[in-house]
Design a protein around this nucleic acid. Sequence first.
RNA 1: GGACUGGUAGUUCAGUUGGUUAGAAUGCCGCCCUGUCACGGCGGAGGUCGCGAGUUCGAGCCUCGUCCAGUCCGCCA
Length: 581
Amino acid sequence: MLRTHTCGELRVNNTSLEVTLCGWVQRSREMGGLTFIDLRDRYGITQLVFNMEKNPALCAEAGKLGREYVIKAKGKVAERSNKNPKMPTGDIEINVEELTVLNTSKVPPFTIEDNTDGGEELRMKYRYLDLRRQTNKKNLELRHKLSIETRNYLNSQDFIDIETPYLIKSTPEGARDFVVPSRMNPGQFYALPQSPQTFKQLLMVAGFDRYFQIVRCFRDEDLRADRQPEFTQIDCEMSFVTQEDILNTFEGLAKHLFKSVLNMEMADFPRMAYDEAMRLYGCDKPDLRFGMTFTGITLLMKGKGFKVADDAEFIAGIKVDGCAEYSRKQLDELTDYVKRPQVGASGMMYIRYAADGSMKSSVDKFYSADDLAAILKQFGAVPGDLVLILAGAEEKTQKALSELRLELGRRLGLMKTGEFKPLWVTDFPLLEWDEETKRFYAKHHPFTSPKPEDIPLLDTDPAKVRANAYDLVINGTEIGGGSIRIHNKDLQRRMFEVLGFTEEDAVNQFGFLMNAFEYGAPPHGGIAFGFDRWSTIFGGGESIRDFIAFPKNNSGRDVMIDSPSAIKEEQFKELSIKLNL
RNA sequence: GGACUGGUAGUUCAGUUGGUUAGAAUGCCGCCCUGUCACGGCGGAGGUCGCGAGUUCGAGCCUCGUCCAGUCCGCCA
């Protein structure tokens, strides 16, 4: 090693030790006769001192060092006369006797500091410089810790890590596939896996009754702050289990991660059926850090001559504690918020229940004091509260009210970082009707098992069938989800029928799985967690990009290596591909 | 596919109603400074106002188009 110590470990009890440090020049401060240099490596920052009286040549040399030069410095640890309590190494410094420039550096395009002056775009282009910053380093360290602790826990529970292929077969269901041409099989393509779903089920058939993998998955869909075209899952599957066994096992994983990574003891996670989540929060991944659950008042508001209410399929609202004094301006802002096209409400009603007991609403014209009092009672409102009400088509209104609830949560500071409210959402619908294609789609995936008691509904009312499917939600983010799978080939065949697959389609796409199910498939089920999201939530971050070493931007581009990019004509030829742009 | 926001010095941003030579901070360069640690002081360099049209006597500012970035909707079994 070129160094004897790191830049983060020396303390006052190392005084007068002869050490050699290596690192990057964070910053230098010249005082004329004295020069200080902050030397940085992965572990911290240590101050180097050069003294003009003791060694003028060396001091002059130190003065020439630029930001981000890579240097090696040999010298003695000394206790500082002027200590810096803000730094872990602030009690000591190194009186440098030998200095070697290991490499020079151009002036970096932004400052390598916690509060950098560089914008997102620039930092992504120079990601290797951005990663030198402490905040990014911390994020990747947290991610590493989560990864190690996940392995530790699952290993302790007899899960085994098995790799599955990346070059697999395209299927039209679900997300768009990334596709890879096969040179040796002209005109044919591999697909990159959206998840190792079918392979882990085949591993169950193979008898590996507890499997896991921390694995890259690929989906060619439009991106968001919490979505990347390639992302990482903690992918798990178990045999001979019920839903209850899976929830318990992976609640165990979550608790272990909370404890080992964040040092937090978590109580048992609450559970909520999908229908309940939709009724109370209008959303299948509610943020439980605050209340403000929905109160339905469709019947109370209808029949009073107010057309908006009379025409509405669904009317519900939320009670905002202690906000009766909201100004007209604030209420108008909220109205504008719900009327944004992305939220989609056509208006908002309010009732202010003033501290003196008086009521003021936006619909006084249509509702008597008794009517309003009845509504307030339904909400359990007390003087000082504000009630906000949306009306319209059920699904749309639920969604808008859910957005309004979250907006108020943000405005009132109720979504605190550092507070964690996990939740299992269970009993998802098995199928989703698509108006455009006039057919059902699997809400989770086509191998999800219906609840046994709901199987008869497959023939009569498929939309009502509930699945043995579950999601883990933390603070309003879906962190993972899974299901008990179908292991019976007849039920699987029936499922494909409901989804409108012909026998031929099913065999063509999933024949290998159906064949496998002919040879003794055990009852099994599993779950997959979004590893990037989990890291982001634990790290209190906003965007999963901050927890991925080399992420892509929202157009799926890597601006550092400039990909995707064109390929050479010879490559197309070799692949028997012609462009059609 | 759609909505919104932004693009001005190396960087982060300001720039009034369209009007003389486009500013600040920071970074960078030079000089001074022996206890700094966001050091301090003095001085200096640094601009295709994303790109292309248009309106105008005159455009960083107005209009249209386009590219790029970000947030969201659709999409993501």
